[in-house]
Design a protein around this nucleic acid. Structure first.
Length: 298
DNA sequence: ATCGAACCTCCAAT
DNA sequence: AATTGGAGGTTCG
């Protein structure tokens, strides 16, 4: 018999769940609407299938499970609260940003957009897959990897697959990953899976490390460069001063921030921005990215 | 050191 | 209808 655990988060800070879940940091959330009036987001957090709903000043998280593998209310609260970074002090960030006109208007537009705290391994693979790729295809690839060797989770809504641990993906090997359509990214993901499953790098431990140490550790992986490393650090490793520079961020920096006379090569844009935005770098990046990407002009 | 070109695959735009 | 261009990047020459 299916059981259900549910927790409610009363919001004291702005939170825009839909904007956050589909802001290009996570790629496995889906929008379900089972004749329900409420928008219902479904996804998997640390192997648990979670359903999320936002009503004005509240976010509700629900898990259903079949007898086995129960979870307590307080564990579910910790799991979801941590993933959603629900306690982040956005109002302070907003206050510090008020003087920056362009940033302020981006905040007005996407108020409540949060950074997430994802699983590092899944985040790493996701962003390796993002190289020279588009969003629908990134979703497709991560889905296929999960179906290929993730654990099936079935509930009333259907069957879903958890993201497989490094050892499982390592067993697919480069050729297995190529068959899933990863293309040249297959050897990158394979390499990372081998390295992590061998214990050469402990991703979770990097949460406790300094920016530079974490960064060096990540880019030591074949196929992980500056941009992917910063994405993983920002979206899963608590390194809030990270600043991933992709094509959209590069545009907005050059259009709105770097003075015309100032020669800042692409390779130095990240550090330039980090010096400017300091501890807010990560959140600034997320708001500027969201706005510039959705404006879609080149 | 720096800068293009090449890389898988899929799909939209000629 | 066949072909070309390009997509949230990284590596190699």
């Amino acid at each position: 018999m299916a059981k259900c655990v549910k927790v409610t988060f009363p919001l004291t800070q702005p939170y825009n769940l839909g904007e956050t879940l589909f802001s290009g940091q996570a790629f496995r959330w889906s929008l379900e609407n089972p004749s329900d009036l409420k928008v219902n987001y479904q996804g998997i957090i640390y192997g648990r299938r979670v359903s999320l709903i936002q009503e004005q000043q509240t976010i509700i998280a629900k898990i259903t499970f079949e007898g086995t593998d129960p979870i307590s209310e307080s564990d579910l609260r910790d799991l979801v609260g941590s993933y959603l970074r629900i306690d982040d002090d956005l109002e302070s960030f907003y206050a510090r940003s008020a003087a920056d006109e362009y940033l302020q208007s981006s905040i007005d537009q996407y108020k409540g957009l949060h950074l997430l705290r994802q699983e590092p391994w899944e985040c790493l693979v996701t962003f390796i897959c993002s190289a020279n790729n588009n969003i629908p295809r990134i979703r497709l690839l991560v889905d296929r990897i999960s179906k290929a060797c993730g654990k099936a989770i079935t509930d009333s809504q259907g069957t879903y697959y958890s993201f497989p641990p490094p050892g499982e993906i390592a067993m697919l090997g480069e050729s297995g990953l190529r068959e899933l359509g990863l293309g040249f990214r297959a050897k990158y993901v394979n390499h990372a899976a081998q390295a992590i499953s061998r214990g050469e790098i402990n991703l979770e431990n990097l949460r406790e490390s300094e920016y530079e140490e974490t960064y060096q550790s990540l880019i030591s992986l074949y196929g992980v460069g500056d941009k992917v490393a910063n994405c993983v650090m920002l979206f899963s490793l608590d390194q809030d001063n990270s600043f991933p520079v992709d094509v959209w961020i590069r545009r907005v920096l050059r259009e709105k921030y770097v003075p015309k006379g100032e020669a800042v090569p692409d390779a130095q844009l990240r550090v330039w921005a980090q010096n400017k935005f300091g501890i807010d770098s990560g959140y600034v990046n997320q708001y500027l990215f969201q706005r510039r990407r959705l404006e879609r002009k080149t």
